[in-house]
Amino acid sequence: MPIRVETVQRIDDAARIVTSSRLARVFGGGTLLMRDVNEADPSIETLIIINDPALKEIRSEGDRIVVGAGVTMAQILASRELAFLAAAARVIGGPAVRSAATIGGNLFAPPPYGEVATALLALGATVQLAGAGAPMPIEDFLRERGPGRVVRSISVPRLADPNGLRFRKVTRVKPKGAPVMSIAILLPQAGGREIRVAYGNMGPTPVRARAVERALEGQKLDALGIARALAVATEGLSPPTDSLASTWYRREVAPVHLRRLLLGEA
């Protein structure tokens, strides 16, 4: 079946098309979707290009920042107010990928990809879909993600400290390679005790490490304070075996990388 490309002016028009056809896909930056198009993937019949300028907006909303789904990694890296997302955006491909790949597309990235989605999960982002519904927590979005959804924007808390989000991508190939895993940690914000920890490529979607979060609550981030968290580094998770690493290997190295990130080691 040859591909058809439809261009629409409004996000809601795209939503109407994807709900009526399971073979329609929203075209963001194309860095994932064009691979399938190039291989004539029969599950894709229609590509939808959305020309809505709202998709490219980065705007403040109270203590949060709303990022349009079509904002690219390069735009995130150029944005001073999104400096806390830079560490995650920088590890996406090379510069030629980052000038195309979008934040909205990353939410749909299958393993081993999705590093920015992992960072957004740790941040407690919310996802605004097309239509009038309320924004949904990113956990809920990831649980049910699929091509039938059109993302309008992603809302993230404005971090006062650009280093408030720690991020690490673990690769065997330097400087660029697909991640064995990635880890994102949102440090407790002023006055709070809550710490949020998310892993990428340790399950079918980015996942929170709840056992680690519980073990870290109220603890000092030193060797003693994090010991219990490291012991439960992969508790409740089912890391995959893929061409990059086995389940066993991922469980073995997760505490090592978690420790380095928590202690701020290289």
């Binding site: 075209f27 194309g30 064009m34 691979r35 390069a74 030629a96 000038s99």
Partner: peptide
């Protein structure tokens, strides 16, 4: 590669590096 993995098709579009194989 046709997958955006190798970079052999890198071109510049409006000043930005782009992978031609992944550009519609």
């Amino acid at each position: 590669c046709g997958q955006g993995t190798c970079g052999a098709c890198t071109v510049i579009v409006d000043g930005e590096p782009r992978l031609a194989c992944l550009t519609l």
